[in-house]
Simulated scan of single mutants.
Amino acid sequence: MYKMIVSDLDESLLKDDGSVSARDLETIARLKRQGIKFVPNTGRGFASVQRLLDDLGTRGEAGQYVISYNGGAVVDNAHNEIVLAKPLPFEVADQIFQLAMAHPDYCAHVYTFHHVYVTRPNPVELGYLANRQVAFTEFHASDLQDFAGRDIAKVIFQHPEMKMREALRDEVAKTIDYQPTVSFSSNRYVEFNPAGIDKGDAAIALGARIGIAPDEIIALGDNSNDLSMIRKVGLGVAVANAIPAVKEAAGLVLDVTNNEDPVTALATKLRL
């Protein structure tokens, strides 16, 4: 029997307008009454998903959780208490940031464990952040010295072309003597997390903390940063709009996209 669903947000649970469908909210509430936990497992910071937790009915509730920063932090909703965390070494974050900022076309996001900082946001990116209700502080710098002494969860870079995102990944790999966890998300970002961090290990670690075995966990996702949880938990589930690699790794591929009540489709398919 499944006891926990961990779900990616953008392009998985959330519709293109950034909301959760009314049917999925009803389904999630029903599953919660049955004792099945529903845990957002996202690249976002936990502070930016508080409105979503309001919709899910888990904001501020003890024993309900969020996995943030692609597995970099596990947070208890009761007091937004970080119960598991691993930061990106500052020197590494600074090196990656400086490499990216040497190119004029990247927009950068720096995630501390409590806030998001953005430099060079273009109009399209500003619209995307507004749609996702992400609160951020804009800053202007060619390095991260202003962040020295602060824990950095991850750094990510937005560019509309995949070849440019891949080029930055390759440049970091050739230049920096550290192997960050690299993933691509939302068809717009290349993300650099601490080595060894992924959504799958975080889901399993949370399960171990609360007495849920890996084979009792379902993971729902769509993109490459979801692959680890799709592969590592009991049942990996892909939405119909998922990239081919996620569909290939999933034990179940839904017939519906993120815009068509994916959690309800999942629950119906599995008779939850």
Rank of each mutant, 00 (worst) to 15 (best):
L144E: 07
L144A: 08
Q145D: 13
Q145P: 00
Q145S: 10
D146A: 13
F147H: 04
F147P: 00
F147E: 05
G149H: 11
G149W: 09
R150E: 15
R150K: 14
D151G: 06
D151R: 05
D151K: 04
I152K: 02
I152T: 00
A153N: 10
A153C: 14
K154E: 03
K154C: 01
V155C: 09
I156S: 08
I156R: 01
I156V: 11
I156Q: 04
H159R: 09
H159G: 11
P160D: 01
P160N: 05
P160I: 08
E161K: 15
E161M: 14
M162V: 03
M162K: 11
M162L: 15
M162F: 11
M162W: 07
K163Y: 04
K163E: 14
M164F: 03
M164E: 09
M164L: 04
R165C: 04
R165P: 03
E166R: 15
A167L: 11
A167N: 08
L168P: 05
L168T: 04
L168Q: 07
L168V: 06
R169L: 02
E171P: 13
E171A: 13
V172K: 08
V172P: 12
A173K: 08
A173L: 06
A173I: 03
A173V: 03
K174T: 09
K174A: 12
T175A: 15
T175E: 12
I176F: 05
D177H: 06
D177A: 15
D177P: 00
Y178C: 13
Y178F: 11
Y178W: 14
Q179M: 12
Q179D: 14
P180K: 08
P180F: 14
V182K: 08
V182P: 09
S183M: 06
S183L: 06
F184T: 05
S185R: 00
S185Q: 01
S186E: 13
N187W: 05
Y189K: 02
V190Y: 01
V190A: 01
V190Q: 04
V190D: 00
V190T: 04
V190P: 02
E191C: 02
E191A: 04
E191R: 05
E191Q: 03
F192T: 03
F192V: 02
P194Y: 04
P194T: 00
P194Q: 03
P194I: 02
A195R: 11
A195W: 10
G196M: 00
G196R: 08
G196N: 01
I197R: 03
I197T: 07
I197P: 04
D198Y: 06
D198R: 02
D198P: 12
K199T: 05
G200L: 12
D201R: 09
D201P: 09
A202W: 08
A203K: 06
I204F: 03
I204V: 10
A205E: 11
A205G: 12
I210Y: 01
I210C: 02
G211M: 09
I212F: 13
A213P: 11
A213E: 13
A213N: 06
A213F: 15
P214K: 14
P214G: 14
